[in-house]
Computed example of a mutant assay.
Amino acid sequence: MVSIKDDFRVAAIQTVSSTQLAQNLDQASLLIQQAVDGGAQLIVLPEYFCLMGNKDRDKLAIRETLGHGPIQEFLCAQALLHGIWLVGGTLPLDCGEPDRIYNTTLVYDPSGLRIARYDKIHLFGYKKGAESYDESVSIRPGENSPQTFTAPCGSVGLSICYDLRFPEFFRALGQVNLMVVPAAFTYTTGSAHWDVLLRARAIENQCYVLAAAQGGKHENGRRTWGHSVLIDPWGDVVDSIAEGSGIAMGDINLQHLHDVRESLPALKHRTM
């Protein structure tokens, strides 16, 4: 049974991940420690925190089976060491195909127990001029329904990056107090749409949104937008970071959440 707290500190970690797994885990470990030192009790890592390869298929080389592998061992150990709720960004999990993986978020509780899994269902594709991305080349879309778990701030909904563009996905999570978004938005799409999409999801669902992003120029030449952020149910930014590695941190205040929903009961007014 999870005890609910009126004020619960959360943190989004921002990285500029490299092509080296060990280096990326070391970076994540240092930032997790800093977030814990700042009082964070729930921490979210970004999408691809463990690897930003030179090629799309580089992630296949570090794929893991569920319950086994150094990335999962790292996440479990960090949650247990610090006694935190850890949303492990994303990692490549075996999907039964030789040339593709699931892009998966795993969640660990303070005892190091894995309590939730979400395989990304919306795969990013973009092409304009010389800039082109197609996640379906190396990723198989997940087949799971929207996933939630319960933490001391109440119900938490899971999403990954490109999901952000599909408001019906977030509605399907039901009424949650917090939505988390591990991401690696490109500089092009992030500079145009990141902030407005995140604020929209917070406002229309009247909940906190915590987005942990990749943020900077990577070895593979890709530039990610960053701007990891915590947004409150009114759409106001609680804390954010621009580019580079770092942390966005703040409190989930359940009284504020209640007040927003009571003063503007949009969720109760829904007819569809």
Rank of each mutant, 00 (worst) to 15 (best):
T186K: 02
A202S: 15
T150C: 10
L60Q: 03
G129K: 12
G190R: 02
T224H: 08
F8C: 08
A11N: 07
R140W: 00
Q33R: 14
K128V: 08
M1D: 13
S240E: 10
F149R: 09
D37K: 15
D26C: 07
A12T: 05
L51Q: 03
A79M: 07
L198Y: 04
A116C: 09
P146H: 07
Q78S: 10
C95H: 00
W234K: 12
T224D: 06
L113K: 15
L45M: 12
A130R: 09
G174Q: 11
D26N: 13
R100I: 00
K120H: 10
F166R: 05
L197M: 13
I252A: 07
P152W: 05
R261M: 10
S29D: 15
C161Q: 02
Q206G: 07
Q34F: 03
P152M: 10
S132Y: 08
Q214I: 05
G157Y: 01
G83Q: 13
L30H: 12
A183R: 00
T271I: 15
R114W: 05
A202M: 04
G174S: 12
M249Q: 15
K5C: 06
M272V: 11
Q255I: 11
A151W: 01
K268N: 12
I247R: 08
R57G: 03
R261T: 12
Q27F: 00
Y162G: 05
G67P: 03
L31C: 06
Y187G: 03
R165I: 10
H269F: 12
L66H: 06
L75W: 00
P46A: 08
V156G: 05
T224K: 08
S245D: 10
L158P: 07
V2P: 03
C76N: 09
S159K: 06
P70R: 04
L51H: 01
Y162I: 04
R140Y: 01
H193Q: 11
P152K: 10
T148S: 08
E131R: 06
E47A: 14
D94R: 00
P46F: 02
P110I: 04
A266P: 00
L267R: 14
L173M: 13
T15P: 02
D251E: 13
M249S: 15
A242S: 14
Q78F: 00
Y208K: 06
V180I: 15
V87A: 12
G157K: 03
L158C: 11
N144P: 01
T148C: 15
R114I: 03
I241F: 01
R171D: 15
N177S: 15
A202V: 10
D259A: 14
Q23G: 15
I139F: 01
F149E: 06
R165P: 00
S245G: 14
I13A: 09
P98Y: 04
A22E: 14
M179L: 14
Q72I: 02
S132Q: 12
I43A: 06
E47R: 09
L164P: 00
Q147W: 00
L80D: 08
T224G: 02
V181D: 11
A130Y: 04
E204L: 11
Q27E: 13
